[in-house]
Write a protein that binds this DNA or RNA. Structure first.
Lengths: 357, 357
DNA sequence: TTGAAAGCGCTAACAT
DNA sequence: ATGTTAGCGCTTTCAA
């Protein structure tokens, strides 16, 4: 027989216990102006003695809820987890509590979750790699302080944090070209929506790849398989690339998970990594670092991105009129064992068309 | 210059627009008794036309917030992600929204997060593998409907969902013994707290291991390294086991991540898996299934556990006086390439008593 | 500096 | 079946 919990302590109880007004208690709770040190002490003592905790629901009705909502597409993606770590670490000292919605894929799920957060009067939102339309993002940002992470382009309604995906792709191409590779192929995430073509990281990576290839004088070697940022997308993309007449000596996959799929296809084709073909991923996830895999990958500092996002959202809560800022961080390359110089002779002039599979 | 968002639509606006009372609107919102179909239709139309969304904060002050809080120790743990999937899937059709706190390790962080959820008037809590004291859990459960996942033992205040860890350990021992192994060692998570010794899955797994070994007549072969459920714990545990005079032919790691650490130590020792030594993990995470690793592992149906937890919490919200239930699911074994019959001759008759480390 | 009082948007008793 | 009204626990004017 569970005995029912006693009635929750309210601000009135505290006020009575401390022999002051509820206003005074409220001021202490918010560190607001207009309470003497003596009063503060008295109230604080009453709060501690009674074990009082303010109701966020009630606070939210008038003021803030001290809650930051985080939306991310996939909890299993370790890069997103890093961003989250950055956010929570940055917010650790503050009164804000981070709450997140379980992975939501697609525009519809995204809309539901964002609405749910607004309904719950969250003080600020951090949207990680949202796929919603720009119009929608602007609408959201007008109703609640918002920071968008991982989407390029600027907006006047929300701040954004990105990692320089063009630079990341260039790191990869340069690394491979420096090793002596010329036929460097890329597996991209297929994109048709024009706005996303400009704003999504995958599109930026593909652009960066093209630019860097041209900058290295390898414009003729540009070779792209357009699939998706999934394990299977990597597998199918690599299969496609390997079946082409002019086989690449290196594959730049747009994400680590894509690289893993590609590695599977390469193994199936009886080729070895990195001797026959080099592979590079993107995100430097824990999987990439894992010993037996040891995937060369572009490292985006997720924690740093998260910390920046948290800082920005707090700043914007404090001043909603301040001009928006775009923070762009610089990636680095984690070189591991899936990349090496191409084997001499084998492919330099192998222009003979290979039969498909 | 972002233009400010217009004032939020309230229930009063809807009532006015539909020419009815706010009570009527409220009833429609809650699907409550006492509203004619005609009224429902009228109100619903007004809601749609105005794009009204009820404020969860305001609702929470009197009634429910339609929010279920989920706490889990580690977002990166894929098993927990599966549980979460089960919860969200089960709750997909309902009005409830799942919100979760970012991974919180340790009793203190756990307490903070749970308090935060209670402060936000969440309707129900799902606590996954909490480490808090039983007293604390009972206190929490008395103030809000709570379901505890992954902790054995029963309570009168909260429902619980577990997977049968004793049975899981037995699956492992039986599988290895059937293959012909006798020296089957175990790497456990060290535990001292008496309550946790009885309730935590790691302790149950160790117990299950001992029981199963005895049941197979292998009581003399029981060999345990007591470290922790981490990669390093697995590494150190395996190193310890391998250095013992009477080397095991199989290692049962209490978690997949532990198995990976063990595999690293085994590789360092110049031994091969499964020829020299078999390895089994626990959780059947994506890592275990990953081709190059292919770890034999105990599969707990996380989605099923999550679905059960969600169902229970909803039921308890509906009726807080109903007796608590304990759901215990049965694990299965995913056999992969890290287990095989021991190589003949090497260890069959090495029954010489080993001195303690 | 302090406190009294009016809401915030909704739900739940209680009329009608 | 429908409407009236009193709060829920805070924050925020505004007056003292």
């Amino acid at each position: 027989m569970p005995k029912p919990a006693p009635r929750r302590i309210t601000i009135i109880d505290v006020a009575r216990h401390a022999q002051v007004s509820t206003t005074a208690v409220s001021k202490v709770l918010r560190n607001a102006y207009g309470a003497s040190p003596a009063m503060r002490a008295k109230v604080q003592q009453a709060i501690d003695e009674l074990g009082f905790r303010p109701s966020a629901a009630a606070r939210g009705l008038r003021g803030q809820t001290y809650t930051i909502g985080v939306m991310l597409p996939d909890l299993r993606n370790l890069f997103f987890a890093d961003i989250l770590d950055g956010i929570t670490t940055q917010l650790g000292d503050t009164d804000y509590q981070v709450l997140l919605a379980p992975g939501c894929n697609g525009e519809q799920a995204e809309a539901r979750v964002i609405d749910a957060m607004i309904d719950r009067s969250m003080d600020g939102l951090v949207l990680i790699a949202p796929v919603s339309s720009k119009t929608r993002l602007n609408t959201v940002a007008r109703s609640v302080p918002t920071v968008v992470v991982g989407r390029h382009g600027s907006a006047t309604t929300y701040d954004s944090v990105t990692d320089d995906d063009v630079a990341g792709a260039a790191l990869v191409v340069d690394h491979l070209a420096d090793l002596g590779h010329r036929r460097i192929a890329h597996i991209e995430h297929h994109e048709t929506d024009p706005v996303r073509l400009a704003e999504m990281p995958n599109a930026q990576r593909a652009n960066g790849y093209r630019d860097a290839m041209r900058a290295r004088g390898l414009a003729d070697e540009i070779d792209i398989a357009s699939t998706s940022y999934t394990h299977h997308g990597g597998y199918a993309g690599a299969k496609e690339l390997l079946s082409r007449p002019h086989r690449p000596t290196a594959i730049f996959a747009g994400a680590d998970v894509v690289a893993l799929g590609a590695m599977e296809a390469i193994a199936e084709a009886g080729l070895t990594i990195p001797d026959d073909i080099s592979v590079v991923g993107y995100d430097n996830s824990a999987l990439a670092a894992f010993g037996p895999i040891s995937l060369t990958s572009v490292d985006q500092d997720g924690r740093e991105m998260g910390a920046n996002a948290a800082r920005l959202v707090i700043d914007r809560i404090a001043d909603r009129t301040r001009r928006t800022v775009q923070v762009k961080l610089t990636p680095s390359l984690a070189v591991r064992r899936t990349t090496a110089a191409p084997v001499q002779g084998a492919e330099v002039n192998s222009a003979s068309p290979a039969p498909t599979e």
